[in-house]
Simulated assay, not measured.
Amino acid sequence: MGCAIKFTPLLDLGPEQPVCGLLEIDNVTLLMNCGWSEQFDEQLLEPVISKLPHVDAVVLTHPDVYHVGALPYLIGRHGLTARIFSTVPVRRMGQLAMQELLLDKRAKKVLRQLQQ
């Protein structure tokens, strides 16, 4: 008796690029990471968004924007409610990485406004 395993890359644009894929084991679907780029291009996430209704759980493996960057967006804007699994360091460092990125984006926006 075996099990059916299938992996489908959804985002994988090379080194230092967003990473996300579906791991299907029998009738369980795991979203492996939900990365995004620092440009936050919503169109890049279309393949991920289309699969969200089938996702049973999310597994996060790394604490950077390329692995966790889309998580807040998918929860807030697209109703992702699946359970999220990660180690404590990945969760905490991922939160810090996203907060730092947000602060950096805000600071750059303020600087551009001051320069005008």
Rank of each mutant, 00 (worst) to 15 (best):
M98V: 01
K51S: 09
G76R: 15
Q113K: 10
L52N: 04
Q43I: 13
Y73Q: 01
H54A: 12
A97F: 12
G69F: 13
E38K: 15
A97R: 12
V110M: 01
F85C: 10
P63F: 14
V48R: 09
I49W: 07
A70I: 02
K109A: 10
L111D: 00
D56E: 05
K108C: 09
Y66L: 10
E38I: 06
V88L: 10
A107G: 09
V48Q: 03
R91Q: 13
A107C: 07
E46N: 10
L74A: 09
S86G: 10
R83C: 08
A107I: 06
L101D: 05
Q95N: 09
Q95C: 12
R112D: 05
L96A: 00
V65C: 11
V59D: 11
E38A: 11
A70Q: 01
M98E: 02
G76A: 15
E42W: 12
I49C: 06
R106Q: 08
L45S: 15
R83G: 09
S50W: 08
H67N: 05
H54E: 09
Q99L: 13
T87M: 07
S86M: 10
G69N: 11
A107Q: 11
E42L: 15
A97Y: 11
L45C: 04
I49Q: 03
A107P: 05
V65Q: 05
A82Q: 00
G76M: 14
T87N: 06
Y73L: 01
G79K: 00
R92V: 15
P89C: 05
R92H: 11
R106S: 14
Q113A: 10
S50R: 12
V68L: 03
A97L: 06
G94R: 00
A70R: 00
K105Y: 13
E100P: 12
E38T: 13
P47Q: 02
Q113N: 13
Q113L: 14
Y73P: 02
L74E: 01
V58K: 06
Q95S: 07
V59P: 15
R112A: 10
K109H: 07
L60G: 10
A70M: 00
R112I: 04
I84P: 04
L74I: 10
G76T: 15
Q99M: 12
S86F: 03
I49P: 10
S50M: 07
F40H: 01
G69L: 12
H78G: 09
K109L: 08
T87D: 00
I75A: 11
L103C: 11
T81D: 08
K51T: 05
P63H: 11
L101W: 06
P89T: 00
